[in-house]
């Protein structure tokens, strides 16, 4: 539980920080174009990449907080013991998906963009860095789901 709290904290501050940078970045874009008159060349791209980070890393954050939108029609009709079993099964499905698509698929995406030396048009940062958030988030979600199962925190 100690580790989980620590991860929660790091994840939370990272997200709040990225959000703040996003706001400042877009304000800077308006400022440079309208007040200074020489539009910034990188803000649009930076905003989009930060968006990817907030969305994908945020997915891990909400998994940790069990904040997902789900339709619970059938599970609620079952006995409590069966519901718990079903929840464990659902969590295992999510773990398998995250391992396959987000960790393996995501890492392959990072690898491809890394070895093929892809850089972003305006900022010239490696695309691998942008996509790196996908396997990271996948690993975090797997961690949260395993911890949920082990600690029987299923609802």
């Amino acid at each position: 539980m100690e580790i989980r709290k620590k991860i929660d904290k790091i994840l939370g501050s990272t997200l709040a920080f990225i959000m703040a940078v996003m706001v400042i970045n877009v304000l800077w874009q308006v400022f440079t174009r309208f007040i200074v008159g020489t539009p910034s060349s990188f803000t649009d791209e930076l905003a989009r990449y930060l968006m990817i980070w907030v969305g994908v890393l945020g997915a891990a954050y909400i998994s940790g907080k069990r904040m997902h939108v789900a339709i619970d029609l059938i599970p609620r009709k079952l006995s409590e013991a069966k519901q718990a079993k079903l929840k464990i099964f659902v969590n295992i499905l999510i773990i398998i998906f995250c391992l396959a698509a987000l960790v393996i698929g995501g890492f392959r995406l990072v690898y491809i963009t890394y070895v093929l030396e892809q850089y972003s048009p305006a900022l010239q940062i490696p695309l691998a860095l942008v996509y790196l958030v996908i396997p990271i988030s996948g690993l975090l979600i797997i961690f949260y789901k395993i911890s949920d199962i082990l600690n029987k925190q299923l609802f």
Partner: peptide, 25 residues
């Protein structure tokens, strides 16, 4: 393997849109 990677790419680049910023803001 390409299928797994494509899902990742879709989830990532699906958010690669300036217009989507309106939501968090």
């Amino acid at each position: 393997l390409p299928a797994l990677t494509t899902v990742s790419q879709r989830i990532g680049t699906g958010l690669d849109s300036f217009a989507l910023l309106a939501i968090p803001f």
